[in-house]
Design a protein around this nucleic acid. Structure first.
Lengths: 213, 213, 213, 213
DNA sequence: CATGAATGAGCTTTCATTCAT
DNA sequence: AATGAATGAAAGCTCATTCAT
């Protein structure tokens, strides 16, 4: 575990206050984000991260308790960025007057753009998710916010769409989009993006539209 | 990534011919499958596997080149089992006369059952998929077969459903079901299974059904 | 602390059963005993011990949980040897007929010989004693046995000596001898050994002897 | 044993002249004394000391060449204090007319009081003594002074006591008292203090007193 | 003078893999 | 064939010490 098994109190993790320190911490996070995205969590070690960040291992450990803590910070921050950049102004003005299909398409495109922020990093999150409850937690929180967003959109469209169980519908819409985007960006499908996006739009459109007489 | 002490001529991996050997190899695979499913690939080490299999580490390495090779064998075999047990007799006799909704529902249930074979093992596969091309390959092959299955079903229903781009539709159906099952079984949703399955069925039904005039 | 912070079960410490293993474990203990005696506990590291024992670090850790566990095993075994070799046949036949001064002298010589087994190792024990409760415990147990020995001798001499509080007397005798031997062998006094042993004998003799009328 | 990064010209250690500097140095020593006493030398690190002293690590190293130099300064100063506070006015007026037993008792009590100044710090000294010649040196010097004190007392009592080899006797008296006090205060005996002090007094009394006819 | 962030050698510990028995 | 002790490269982490600010 540690250098001296009989050693006493663990040194505190430094909270950077000065500009330079903050930058350094950012540099470490950026380097780690890149490496984790490329190779996954386990195959990357602290020396590699420090090296890539142009920082000493000692610095690494003065900013982060351990590799795992670094990962969690990165993920949390990543999801914040994700949310801020993509979902804070999710819909253009006047969207309520749009055609249903347009709305769906617009939302899908938004999600695609969000994913493009750093598909590789998403890849890493997905690979950790299943065995790390803390990573899972961050992930769940992020998903929840996105579902709320969709729910508010659906509420606005209530009259124009055909939905019985709104929460189930929200889940279905959210996860279908996430699923396609995920497969498109992370699992390297053989089919063209436009073809799939188009089909997804069709599926959701038929699912939601009110049956004409 | 090898950490062994001395370079040297690597012994060939043995192909077991005798009954006892085959059983031993199976025991190792079974033990590893369980451990990988529980903890993931990286956190399990070869000693643990050998111990759990009641076999010596030496035996382990006479049957498998390394930990990774073991993983691939397990995954391959797993998908074979998956396919055999679930998709070889996928549909009951007379399904073609069923109602579209019934067919969808039936297929979803089949997939659910397949997943239940060993959700934890799927979990592990998903966590490896993203960084290991060989795991990915096995996974892709399996998915391909499943898509073919769906394609043949759709072909049979051609007249009763509304599909433009059949391959895109196949993908959409397959991945939507996989997605919901995956979230239901591996990501611990808060909603009840029946509710989501029902919504999924509705979505696919509306997506596929011919619009009535 | 550990190589993988997310790792699971710690490998068991191996209990050597075969001759060769037992010898190897002994070799490690012998090497460590020597190094600890020379430099103390903290300044010696596990690589040095392994090197000195002609063994790999890996082996070191397969026989001992950590450096501390090794220390405790060594100390325990050391005190066993100490007891066996020196105190199991402490007094020659017919000692009860000896002169009191002779008995005292004899006992002191016994203790001296015991110390000479490995003064340096005692040095190390003393240096750890004060901060390590586990080392202290082993040490206390050993002292207790030695005091019991003295008590039995005193009981045999009851009529010939002048003792009010027997347990206090036992303590005084035991600790006075231990003290002089300790200072003589570990603290490098400038005075000649014989001179001090002689004075110690005198002190204890006067302390114990019945006042003549 | 240095672990610093780059070789270079080492800055001289500053000798503080201003009041504030002297106070700062004292603060460091006081903090270190406390920490060393609590945990021993090795398990305390320079950051902890600086933190506890409310001083920067940089300051620490401008006042002390290294951790070891700090230790030596503390020990030296400690022994000075020890000597000043306890042995500069060692005996009350008129002690020469006291009963021998009273003198012995008085001296023992003095030593006890001295020890109580900071038993924990003594503990630390003892644990370092064995492996560090410099600590040993300071310790020896202090002991020497105390033996001289006893020698002068014995000289004064020459006629009333029975001593052949005066230096050996001084050693015996000094070390017996130190031994009992040490065991009492640092090794946590199970017996009551008064009982042991009483027995020690008896032993020394019988050792020294002139045999009555 | 003071600060405390930064350094990196060095320590503890693990584990994939080998090979003598 | 089977065993499991042995190996040692490599990972995680610490802390004495320096030096830019």
């Amino acid at each position: 575990m540690s250098r001296g098994s009989m050693a006493g109190i663990k040194q505190e993790v430094r909270i950077p206050r000065q500009q330079r320190s903050i930058e350094k911490k950012q540099r470490i996070k950026a380097a780690a984000e890149k490496l984790f995205a490329e190779k996954g969590f386990y195959p990357v070690n602290s020396n590699q991260i420090a090296l890539a960040a142009g920082v000493s291992v000692g610095s690494f450990y003065s900013y982060f308790k351990d590799k795992k803590a670094l990962l969690l910070e990165i993920i949390t921050e990543f999801h914040q960025r994700f949310q801020t950049e993509v979902f804070s102004q999710p819909m253009e003005k006047g969207w309520k007057d749009w055609d249903l299909k347009e709305i769906i398409r617009y939302y899908i495109n938004n999600t695609l753009k969000a994913f493009e922020l750093s598909p590789d990093f998403f890849r890493m999150i997905y690979s950790m998710l299943y065995y790390d409850p803390e990573v899972k937690e961050v992930f769940d929180a992020a998903e929840k916010k996105e579902r709320e967003q969709i729910k508010s959109i659906l509420s606005n469209l209530k009259r124009r769409i055909c939905v019985q169980d709104i929460d189930a519908a929200v889940f279905m819409i959210y996860s279908s989009i996430a699923n396609v985007v995920h497969r498109l960006k992370l699992l390297g499908l053989q089919m063209e993006e436009e073809r799939l996006i188009s089909e997804l739009t069709t599926m959701l459109y038929r699912y939601l539209k009110k049956d004409t007489i």
